[in-house]
C-alpha cells in the first residue's frame, strides 16, 4: 500500500502534566516528528486502548517540537488523559480544520473573550497575535472563570501577559464569577467585562471561546453592542470521531465542524439548528 493512512496517529511522549485547576490539566507532549499547526486548528488525541477526542492545542503555534493540550476532565478519554504520567505514549492526528484568519484581523481591534477551559485555544491564538502584534490596532483580552481556583494559566496571565500592556497596545479585563479574599481583579460573569467596552465595533473582530452557554450570552451581548454577525468568531464544539469530514458526527446543519470549522463566524451558522447545544 502506498497510501498513507489518515487515521494513523503520530506517536508522542508525555513530557509533563500540569495541573491548571481541580478539573483541568495541561499535557505537554513531545511528538516523534516535528508537528506544526496554526492557531485555531485542532488535533485528535489518542490515548491507546481508550479512545480519541479532539482538542485545540493551547501552546504557541511557533513551536514545532513540543505541543501542549489543555483538557478538562469530562468523560472517558479526558479522564484517561488526566491520568497520564511523564513518559507515557499517546498519539495525535492533525492538524485539522481551518485556522483563525489572522489576515482578516489585520488593522483591526481584536477582542478576545475566553471562559474556563475555553482559554486554551485563545492562548494559542494570543501567542500568534503577539508574534505579529504590529499588524493589529490593539488587542483587548476578556477572560473569566468560575472562581480564582478555576482560573487556568493564572500565573502566565497575571504575571507575564499583564505586563505586556506596558509594551504593546494590549489591555486585559479579568473576572471570576465569584471571588475569594485574595482576588484583586473583577467579579461577575465574563459578559460583564464587555460593559463599557471602548472599542470601535465597526473596525473590530471578536473571538469567543468557552462553554456553549457562555458563548451564547457573549454573542448576544456582542450583537447588542453593535458587532456584526460576520465579525464574531465562535469556536464550535461537537461530538467528533474522524476529524476529516467522513463520519458526519460533527455537522451543524450542512457544515462540518472538523473541516469547515472549528471556528465559524456567527453569520455562517446562526440559522442552523442546535447552534448553542
Amino acid at each position: 500500500m502506498n497510501h498513507s493512512n489518515i487515521y494513523k496517529p503520530l506517536k508522542c511522549i508525555v513530557e509533563d502534566v500540569i495541573e491548571e485547576s481541580p478539573t483541568i490539566k495541561t499535557v505537554v507532549l513531545i511528538p516523534e516528528k516535528e508537528f506544526t499547526f496554526q492557531a485555531g486548528q485542532f488535533i485528535s488525541f489518542t490515548v491507546p486502548g481508550i479512545g480519541e477526542a479532539p482538542f485545540t492545542p493551547s501552546s504557541s503555534p511557533f513551536v514545532s517540537d513540543k505541543l501542549e493540550v489543555t483538557v478538562m476532565r469530562t468523560g472517558l478519554v479526558t479522564d484517561a488523559i488526566h491520568k497520564l504520567k511523564k513518559g507515557d505514549v499517546v498519539g495525535i492526528r492533525g492538524p485539522y480544520g481551518k485556522p483563525y484568519p489572522l489576515d482578516k484581523f489585520a488593522k483591526k481591534e481584536v477582542l478576545l473573550v475566553g471562559g474556563g477551559v475555553g482559554l486554551a485555544p485563545i492562548r494559542a491564538l494570543f501567542y500568534a497575535l503577539i508574534g505579529t502584534v504590529e499588524q493589529y490596532k490593539r488587542i483587548v483580552f476578556c477572560c473569566g472563570a468560575k472562581t480564582p481556583a478555576d482560573y487556568i494559566y493564572k500565573n502566565l496571565i497575571l504575571n507575564e501577559w499583564l505586563k505586556m500592556s506596558e509594551k504593546f497596545p494590549i489591555s486585559f479585563r479579568i473576572t471570576v464569577d465569584s471571588k475569594d479574599d485574595n482576588w484583586k481583579f473583577g467579579e461577575g460573569l465574563v459578559t460583564k467585562t464587555l460593559d463599557h467596552l471602548d472599542v470601535d465595533v465597526s473596525n473590530s473582530v471578536a473571538i469567543v471561546c468557552g462553554p456553549p452557554v457562555m458563548m451564547k450570552f457573549v454573542t448576544l451581548k456582542l450583537l447588542d453592542i453593535g458587532y456584526k454577525d460576520s465579525a464574531i468568531y465562535l469556536s464550535m464544539e461537537r461530538k467528533m470521531y474522524c476529524a476529516v469530514g467522513h463520519c458526519r458526527h460533527c455537522l451543524i446543519g450542512p457544515y462540518f465542524v472538523c473541516k469547515d470549522g472549528p471556528v465559524f463566524t456567527y453569520d455562517s451558522i446562526k440559522n442552523e439548528p442546535g447552534v448553542w447545544a
Partner: peptide, 24 residues
C-alpha cells in the same frame, strides 16, 4: 448512510483502530 465511529483497540504502543457504523 455512512456514519461511523472510531474505536481505539490498541494494546500497546502500536496503534490499532476500528471503524464501526453509528446511527444518528
Amino acid at each position: 448512510c455512512v456514519c461511523f465511529l472510531l474505536e481505539d483497540i490498541s494494546r500497546n504502543e502500536n496503534f490499532v483502530k476500528a471503524k464501526i457504523w453509528d446511527s444518528c
